[in-house]
Amino acid sequence: MTRSPRVLWLTVPSLVWFAVFSVGPLVAMFVIATLRWKGLLYEPTYIGLDNVTKVFADPTFHAAVRNSLIQVAVAIPVMIPLAFMLGYHLNTKPRAYRILSVLYFSPGLISISMTGMIFYGVLSPNGGVNGLLRGLGLDSLANAWLADPATALPSLIAIDLWRGIGWTAVLFAARLASVPGEVIEAAQIDGAGRFRTMWQVAFPMVKDYVRTLTMLQFLWTLFTSAALILLLTKGGPGTSSTTLSYLVYAKAFSMRDLGYSQVVGVVLLLFGIAGMALIRALLRGDTR
């Protein structure tokens, strides 16, 4: 360690870069939220909190809040425990675990836009899912999954789970590999069942990591749903699959109301912070 802090000057370029391209736009969001701005080619005017009033009175916004809440409230509590159990299983090195871990890992390599293209085919009325159902003689269950208000949002959540569970499981397995094997064995010699060993011995040892990953998956699900929705449902039918994240995008680029869009952006950010606080409280580390 050097005593002279002069070497810290080397961090300045990266800090400037980060300030210009990341912090600046984040701050600008709060400013744009107070403007009347009809699309990027127009001149904005300051209207203060009028946008906030408008947004909070809009039924589309209410639908988006509801859909975002459903999305994270279903996706995260399903994804994290399943991923943990699969990760635990992977870590016991079952037969052909290499094949399993490569498969689990693979959605992590596929971009959101490619995922969209894959499921565009899979979920289309004549696509893979319906083909499978017809093959099983379950024709009556076949559906236009993305065009039916009852199944559009559940389909998107299912895609989140499809790509999220395996990827998170591989990460959990990597973390669990650093837990000393003797601890697990000792518990099993004491007669603890597999399920109990997993949740009462292994889980507390990696709880901090579970919390970190839960937060990351939560933020990911909450913020990045816009891309998949844009590719697959455009928020519809009606507002049935409009999330907050998609509303930010749609209001700015298709409905040309940047002030509205950025009010929603601020709400989304507050949601993110509140959710992280909640996850932190629920998965509080053991005080050692």
Binding site: S22, I32, L40, F223, T224
Partner: peptide, 19 residues
Amino acid sequence: FSAGFLIPPFAALIPTVVL
């Protein structure tokens, strides 16, 4: 940087377009 790591870039998409 730790705080920045947590904020998804999407949050500031529209201001970044303006930039």
